[in-house]
């Protein structure tokens, strides 16, 4: 049986984290291929629905990355994100979702290495946790 490979969905902000991921590629930093990236204009775009829907559709982990607080291209989008997603994290923990499955990171355009590290760490963690079943819709089996 092949080793279990988790699916991680990453929402990256256009101005910092997506550029950071780009830098990781250009700099040839190695990171696991388990991550699927969705580019959003700002981490402030992330609604809790996105996270829950990702889990529902079979993501084993969800990563959200944006500019460091203070560096937001739209000056304050990520401050709102920070509040919203902190509370979402608490809620997920409250209903029994392992916090390692849901991560928020601040990754700037120059932090290609950090991006690779975050993906590596998260993939390892989620691999250890195994497939996420709690939220998954029952009908779409592999």
């Amino acid at each position: 049986m092949p080793e279990y490979e988790p699916k991680i969905l990453a929402f990256l902000c256009n101005w910092c984290s997506y550029a950071g991921a780009d830098l990781a590629g250009v700099s040839r930093f190695q990171y696991p291929p388990n991550v699927r990236i969705v580019r959003v204009m700002c981490s402030g775009r992330i609604s809790p629905r996105f996270v829950l829907k990702s889990f529902q559709e079979g993501a084993d982990g969800v990563l959200i990355a944006g500019c460091h607080p203070g560096d937001c291209h739209y000056s304050k989008g990520n401050y709102y994100t920070r509040r919203r997603l902190t509370v979402l994290g608490k809620l997920l923990e409250h209903v029994g979702v392992d916090p390692r499955r849901f991560k928020v990171k601040w990754i700037s355009a120059s932090e290609g290495g950090k991006f690779a590290d975050v993906i590596k760490e998260m993939t390892e963690n989620v691999k250890g946790l195994g497939p996420q079943r709690s939220f998954k819709r029952v009908d779409d089996d592999e």
Binding site: R49, K53, Q56, R84, F135, R137
Partner: peptide, 24 residues
Amino acid sequence: RWCSKSADKSNNEFFHLIRAMHLV
């Protein structure tokens, strides 16, 4: 459609957690 009408655990949980987030 964010949440299916199907009343299964997954969609019910989606509904309740979204409502919880909206009530913070």
